[in-house]
Every structure is written in structure tokens, then in C-alpha cells.
Amino acid sequence: MDRFFSLCLQGDINSAMEYLSSIQPKTKEIEKLQQRYIERFFSQKPDENILTEDSWIRDVVSAYHNYFRTVLTNADLMNDAELNLNKSLRMHLKIESPLNIDETENELANIFTEKGYYFLGGVTPPFRGAYIWKRTETVNFNVEIPHQSIPVSVHMMSDFILEGWMGYATFNNRSVGGWANEDGLYCNLNRYKDLEDDHFQVSYLKHEAQHLYDYKYFPGLKSYELEYRAKLVELIYSKNHLILEKFLNDAKNDPDFPHPYASFNIIKNLSSIILKKDYEPNINVWLEKDYKKISSAALELFDKNSRELKTVSL
């Protein structure tokens, strides 16, 4: 299902469903998944799984669900969908003044705080969030990234009600693992069952720590530039081809989607260095290469990018 969920994370439920329909023969699990997606995205009574009894919170989350369904099945309607989302949220806030959606979400955050929840609005490119959760616990780490180690505070988030558009698009099989802010890292604890394995230590901790470093020393980088560097760090410290395979599945040549676009550029540049090709999408070709060679090439690309950024900043 990696390819299916990767298409969902590219914001294209229609293509994901076409891919699912093409799988033959279908297992009972695939048939069940297909029905769940039809009920959520293509029925008049969509699936609503909202983990709270608070009616006001349910109404707010439903407004985001409606927005997600629209943009994930017809991205051309994104602007109209955002206007409708803002209108619906203002109605639940009982605000008549024409606040823009960022102002509206600031008001939402205040009410969620009063109700004992955390709320983060804004955009997870190219669509709006939001993220709503109940508990946060802070843990400190010292994280090795290329050429240095940095101390970081990680705010462990749990008991989510809403995990952004990525969570909604994948029934929370995939969602944002966390993010980096000036006050430290935020970690979606739902995504990490073992804090000692590489999924957390490399794909989350080193990835996000690199963001913290880059925010400080290379301010103003675009989202896909930040993701390019952090994903290279994952490849540098990974022990096998698994993360590379994930990047291959996720890759998309579209800068509106920072994570897939960064993956695309990484595969493109690694193909040039290792295979002397423009772009190699076949994982079997990569599996024939000793992973140490891929890791070394990732470090070469990372250092090259750092030199270029330092030259620009001079």
C-alpha cells in the first residue's frame, strides 16, 4: 500500500483510487480500504470519525473535513474551499466581521486552549491543516547531524483529534510526524512506537534537528529546500534502502508539494552521481547498489548544497 498512500500524500485521491482499482486480484483488505475511501470522499454521507463528544469541537473538525474532501478530490477548487472553510469556522465562532482565515484560526486556538486542547492552524503545503491534540510532554535530546551535534527539546504530542490533511487523506496511516519551531521540535507520538529505532531516531529526530539548524544558519529557505536537506540527512544516517524506496514512491516533480518535490530532486541527483542517468525510478536498480555508496553520495550532495548556500549568504 506504500504507492497508494504516497499518491494520497500527493494530494490526489482520484489518482490514488484509480491505482487501487487497478490492483488485481483484490484482497479483502484492499476491498475494505476501497470502500472506506468511497464512503469518506465520494458519498453524500461521508465517514466522520471525530474522537470527542464536545459538539463545538466536532463542528469545527467537520468544517476541516469538508475542506479536505474538496481539495483532495478537486485541487482546482482550493481557493473557494478555503473561503468556505473560513465562512464555516467564523459561523462556529459566532463572528460576523470578515476575518481572514489566519485570524480566524487564531481565535480558534484561544477557544481550544480554554477547552484544554492544543490547536495549530496554517498551511501544510499546499493545503491548510489543522492539527488538534490533547497532551504534550517535553523530552530533551542531543542529536548528531552532519558535522555537528545539537541539543533539542522535543514536545511529544498525543491524543490527536485531527492530524491535518495528510492524516485525513490516509485514515492516519500516514501523517505529519512532527515539525520544527523556534522553541524546539514537535513530535506526533502516534507515528513512533519505539523511540530507539531508526524511524524515530533518523526519519524524525535527525530530519527535524536539521530543520532547526537550517532555520538558524540559512534563514529564508523555501519549504522544499529545507526538505531536500533534511531528507538527505535521513539517507546519510540510514542503514539500508528502505528510506530511499519511500522517497521513490513519494517523489513528484511539483514544488507545490515540498516533501514529494524534495524526494524527486534527491532521486534525480543521486541518479546522476551514481548511475549517470537523468532519473531512475526503479527500486530494483537501486537495490543492486551497496547502500554505503548511496549514503556517501547523499553526504556529497548535502555538502555541495551547504557550500552553495554559504556562498549565497556571503
Rank of each mutant, 00 (worst) to 15 (best):
F302M: 07
C187V: 11
T73F: 05
V312S: 02
D54C: 05
I132K: 00
F112T: 09
Q210F: 07
D197C: 07
F4V: 05
E234M: 07
K206W: 03
N188G: 03
H211P: 04
E280A: 09
N49F: 14
F112N: 09
M17C: 09
L309G: 00
T27N: 02
L242E: 14
L72I: 02
S55Y: 08
E107A: 12
A297W: 07
K222W: 08
F42P: 03
V154D: 04
I57M: 12
T124Y: 06
L309T: 00
D278C: 02
S15F: 04
R307K: 08
N181Q: 14
P146C: 04
T27G: 10
Y168M: 02
M17P: 06
L7S: 01
N106M: 09
E18I: 06
V285G: 05
K32A: 15
K292L: 13
D254M: 09
M166A: 10
I23N: 10
L221A: 13
N188V: 03
H259W: 03
D256G: 11
K222S: 13
K26A: 15
F247Y: 11
S88L: 10
N188P: 01
G11H: 01
A298H: 08
F171M: 07
K310P: 00
L205P: 01
K45Q: 15
R3W: 01
E196Y: 11
S55G: 00
D214R: 09
Q201R: 15
F218D: 01
D54R: 05
K239C: 06
N269G: 04
H207C: 00
S238I: 06
F200H: 06
L275K: 03
I243V: 14
P125I: 02
H65N: 15
E280L: 07
I50H: 09
M157F: 08
L185T: 09
L275Q: 02
Y228G: 02
K239Q: 12
D303L: 07
P46Y: 12
N269D: 15
P98A: 02
F200R: 05
S295F: 10
N181D: 14
F160I: 00
I150S: 05
P125Q: 12
V176H: 04
H92I: 07
P219M: 12
K206H: 03
T52E: 02
Y64M: 12
I95W: 01
E82C: 06
P258W: 06
R135C: 08
I38P: 03
F247I: 08
G220P: 08
H65C: 11
N249W: 10
L287R: 15
N173S: 08
N66R: 15
E300F: 12
R40K: 15
E137K: 15
L7T: 01
I236M: 10
N110H: 10
L242V: 08
D80G: 05
D59C: 07
K231Q: 09
S21V: 12
N173Y: 06
G220Y: 11
S62A: 06
F257G: 06
L235P: 01
A251S: 14
Y291K: 02
S153Y: 12
K94W: 08
T70A: 14
Y237E: 01
I273A: 02
E227P: 06
N240A: 07
Y19A: 13
I101T: 14
L185I: 12
K246M: 13
T124I: 13
L275E: 03
N84Y: 13
K310A: 03
H207V: 01
P281H: 14
